[in-house]
Design a protein around this nucleic acid. Structure first.
Lengths: 92, 92
DNA sequence: TCTTATACCGGTATTAGTATCACGTCCATG
DNA sequence: CATGGACGTGATACTAATACCGGTATAAGA
């Protein structure tokens, strides 16, 4: 096993990300936001529904920009109960 | 062609991300930072050297946390010139 | 000199993200 | 009722990220 097959916690985190993005999208259509972010509507759907729990960094960046979200907010909202206790803390 | 094979611009963007992360790492070892971020040293090396230009969102989140960086700063530093300025602006 | 630690690099294996296609559903409008 | 838009889901295709392995180079220290 050379590649971590995405733990349930990671999928849960991806689900939170999807909910957050969908909420931020509000009443706008998927196609509109996806076009604004430069991705396909299907991909946006997968991210929002949690079927793509760990999208590429710049995909999220583009979506956050299209939705007017702060990346720090997004990241904070997705990791409410931090995973590695001390990732930031230990390093800092 | 079902998947955009990573344009040169995207690779360039990834290279900027790598340089930024390496600079933020300072004198600390790759293994130390990678462990703090919860990823393998090999992966961190690939990201820093630009060989993994579009890492997963939460990978960058973990690295930024381990390095004490703001995600908005990171994203801004990676797309200095021609990030589709309309993305955020148009949406907002 | 030998050993150790760090980093770089190539290859390999496996999972996952991204995109397209096709079909189905729901809802509003004609 | 028919039509169209928006969302959802499954399958399919292909590229990329992640991880591990071995080898290599360099610098520091015994």
């Amino acid at each position: 096993m050379v590649r971590t097959p995405l733990t349930p916690a990671e999928r849960e985190r991806g689900r939170r990300l999807g909910v957050l993005l969908r909420t931020a999208r509000g009443g706008r259509s998927m196609a509109e936001v996806a076009a604004a972010a430069g991705i396909s509507a299907e991909t946006l759907r997968k991210i929002e529904t949690g079927r793509a729990p760990t999208p590429a960094f710049f995909t999220v960046v583009a979506l956050a920009a299209a939705l007017g979200l702060s990346l720090d907010e997004v990241a904070g909202a997705c990791a409410p109960a931090e995973e590695p206790a001390g990732a930031a803390g230990a390093a800092a």
